[in-house]
């Protein structure tokens, strides 16, 4: 109590004389200085956010692998040679194919397997529910190191090292529980009355799910699919270890091959990086609003 009084009186003595003569500002209005400061910080932030990517784009236009040392020289000899070289003389399209196969495989499997589970944990309370949710949460925090060694052994026993299927299965170990979480979050936002109406009209729980809820949950499914795709696409550790044949490298592995201990083809690497970044980020921007909502609003009382 006493502290508040002290604070207010202090505030009054501080601001009183200065503020009174001025025009009263409405809500959401700020002084010019505050606006300028906001813009200044945001511009600085945007520059920092954009610069490394922009720099890659810029370097990708320089024809020589040491151009990064003298970036000024690139202006005079800008060329798209790096791009044509990457597209024609490297395994770029093989890597792209591997990346797409693995990511799409993970996405389809992850969403298919997780969909019914997301619905069940959103709508039903069954013995073991809390334990099950806990398991789903814990599997998401597995460090790569936990599963990598045993997976490597198991997959080599099965002859699945260096195969797309092996990598898809590995990715599913994280994608499936994550999709289940995301989908639960989305199903939670669909009113229960819809289920009840379906049940009253004589649908079984499976019928309710398949005929009523699933069509309504398309945006949620899209978010889960997109999220699995992005994680699988950008995964580095397992892909680096499990893919041995350089025709089967995913893009994340292939990009590393430009920089070895002896030779660093930075110009080609930059061009490849840009080629990868453009479609992925366009895709990302198209769905990012849904993604954010899906990631954080999937509230649960676990």
């Amino acid at each position: 109590m006493s502290t508040t009084t002290v604070e207010t009186s202090a505030a009054v003595t501080d601001d009183g004389p200065a503020r009174r003569p001025r025009r009263i500002r409405g809500r959401e209005e700020r002084s010019l200085a505050a606006s300028l400061a906001s813009h200044g910080i945001l511009i600085a932030g945007s520059v920092v956010a954009l610069f490394p990517v922009g720099w890659l784009v810029f370097l990708s236009l320089g024809p020589d692998e040491d151009d990064y040392l003298h970036p000024g020289g690139i202006w005079k000899k800008m060329t798209f040679d790096n791009y044509s070289f990457v597209l024609q003389h490297t395994s770029f399209f093989d890597w792209l194919k591997s990346s797409l196969i693995v990511s799409l495989g993970t996405t389809v499997l992850g969403v298919l397997v997780a969909a019914t589970t997301g619905y069940a944990v959103s709508r039903m309370r069954f013995p073991g529910y809390r334990k099950f949710m806990w398991v789903l949460l814990v599997t998401q925090m597995f460090p790569v190191a936990v599963l990598m060694v045993p997976m490597y052994q198991i997959l080599s026993d099965l002859g699945l090292i260096d195969s797309y299927l092996g990598l898809i299965l590995v990715y599913c170990s994280t994608a499936v529980p994550y999709c289940a979480w995301l989908l639960k979050g989305y199903f939670d936002t669909i009113p229960f009355e819809i289920d009840e109406a379906g049940r009253v009209d004589g649908l079984s729980p499976f019928g309710t799910f398949a005929r009523l809820i699933l069509p309504l949950a398309k945006p949620g499914l899209a978010v889960a699919a997109f999220y699995s795709f992005i994680t699988a696409f950008g995964e580095v550790a397992f892909a680096t270890t499990f893919m041995l044949d350089d025709q089967k490298y995913t893009l994340a592995v292939g990009l590393q091959t430009f920089i070895s201990e002896h030779d660093a083809q930075r110009n080609l690497m930059a061009a490849t990086a840009v080629l990868i970044a453009i479609p992925v980020s366009v895709f990302f921007y198209l769905v990012q609003k849904n993604l954010v909502a899906g990631l954080t609003a999937g509230g649960t009382k676990g």
């Binding site: 490394p52 950008g234 992925v280």
Partner: peptide
């Protein structure tokens, strides 16, 4: 601003880290 500020998230990490490395 919002679109520019999420660039680091939109571009895959394995790409941007190489940019930083250079």
């Amino acid at each position: 601003y919002r679109l520019l500020l999420i660039v680091p998230w939109a571009v895959p990490t394995f790409v941007t880290v190489f940019g930083w490395r250079i």
